[in-house]
Amino acid sequence: MQPNELKAVIRFNDFAAYFGPRGVVAMAWWMGAIHAARIRNDQNSFPFLQVIGDAGVGKTLLLDYLQKLNGQTPYGHSLAHATPAGRTRTFACARQRVVICENYDGSERTVDWDELKPLYSAGSMLLRSGAGESEQVTFRGALVITANQPLECSEAVSSRMILVDLSATDAHTPRVRPDAIGDLDASEASAFGIKVAQSEDWICSNLQAFLPAYQGQLTRKHGVSLSARTALNCAQMICLIDLLCNLLSISQELQLEARKLIHDIAFLDTIPY
């Protein structure tokens, strides 16, 4: 399927009209997430995606759309309503799925977000049974956290995330109705996931080839204040944005706007708090 045909099948132009460059960032991450296990194996990391915004801003619409792209049944998991063992079991059973964790239910139960750190790198976790036995399990999927406000978590966790804020002051104003993408046929949209799955070697080999150059560009632009982890996350995302734009023949203007959002993440990392 040619790029313009694939764009038409997934209604990309309507998607971009609704979510703008933030949608492109989220879709590029989603494309990488299909191969998250291999990317972690190659580069020892794949970032989490944090999607935030006020109620009604489009978080559910965005994630429902993206899930249709790889034929995944909408899946929400409330971390606060599970035990540590339950959370580990969820991640272990996810296989190569994207796990969407919700954090805006007003629960008084707290989550130790540091539990998630292993999912960023090797993905290995220790699953303990009620009988006191334990086994090593591996998370092969990717993690999305959705909330109304940014997580209150340690820097060690926040630095493992790519933040997409749909309520930001400079957020794109939707130019189409929600149903322009909300009623997308999942069986047709899965053509995207099939194409991305078939392109595994192309995606992962290009990430390997271009990652050092992107990291170097970010370090030179933002200086020594930019953390190595953020430089790696942002370099991965810039490369994934470029590959997505190649895959779908996305305009250079939209590509540059999406890239700018990633450079903004890198810049904010250099500002002392």
Rank of each mutant, 00 (worst) to 15 (best):
T146Y: 01
P21A: 07
R109F: 12
Y120L: 09
E188P: 00
L143W: 09
E108R: 12
A156S: 15
P178G: 06
E102W: 03
K117L: 15
D183A: 02
I241E: 07
W113M: 04
K7N: 06
E5I: 13
T138P: 00
I34T: 11
S158Y: 11
L151I: 01
R11S: 09
N233W: 03
G130C: 07
F210G: 04
K117I: 11
G23H: 09
Y75T: 10
C93V: 04
C204G: 02
S121I: 01
Q2C: 03
T60E: 05
F91Y: 15
L268R: 15
V176A: 05
Q236A: 01
N70E: 07
L207N: 09
L69N: 07
A28D: 00
Q198R: 12
R22N: 10
I194E: 11
A17G: 13
K117Q: 05
V51P: 01
R140C: 12
F19T: 00
T169S: 14
Q72L: 03
V25S: 07
I100N: 14
L207C: 10
C234M: 03
V164F: 08
P174C: 05
N148C: 08
V57N: 08
R229K: 15
L61V: 08
G182L: 02
A191E: 12
L244Q: 00
K195S: 12
T88R: 12
G71W: 11
L69M: 13
T110I: 08
F192L: 02
P21W: 00
C245Y: 06
Q96C: 09
C153T: 15
A85W: 00
V164W: 10
P212S: 05
I145S: 04
D42T: 07
L61S: 08
A16V: 15
S190H: 09
L268H: 11
I10G: 12
A171M: 05
R11G: 04
T90P: 04
L127Y: 08
Q208D: 13
R160I: 00
R95S: 14
S124A: 02
T219L: 02
P118E: 06
T219W: 05
D242M: 04
A36K: 00
G71P: 10
W30H: 01
L69I: 13
A92I: 10
I39R: 09
T270V: 09
R220H: 06
T270G: 02
Q136I: 14
R40D: 01
H172L: 00
M27Y: 09
P174I: 06
I10N: 07
I162L: 15
Q208T: 14
T90K: 09
P272S: 12
L69R: 10
M125A: 10
N148S: 11
H172E: 05
L126Y: 05
V57C: 13
E155C: 01
L243W: 00
R160F: 02
S187Y: 03
L143P: 01
T110E: 15
S205N: 07
P74I: 00
T270C: 08
L79K: 00
L254Q: 11
S225T: 05
L207Q: 08
G53A: 01
A33C: 10
L226S: 04
S158T: 13
A197N: 06
A80Y: 01
Q255E: 10
I250D: 07
C234Q: 07
R89T: 14
Q2S: 12
A168Q: 03
G32A: 10
R89V: 08
G182Y: 03
Y214C: 06
D170S: 11
V224W: 07
N44R: 08
N70M: 04
V196Q: 04
L143Y: 10
T173Y: 05
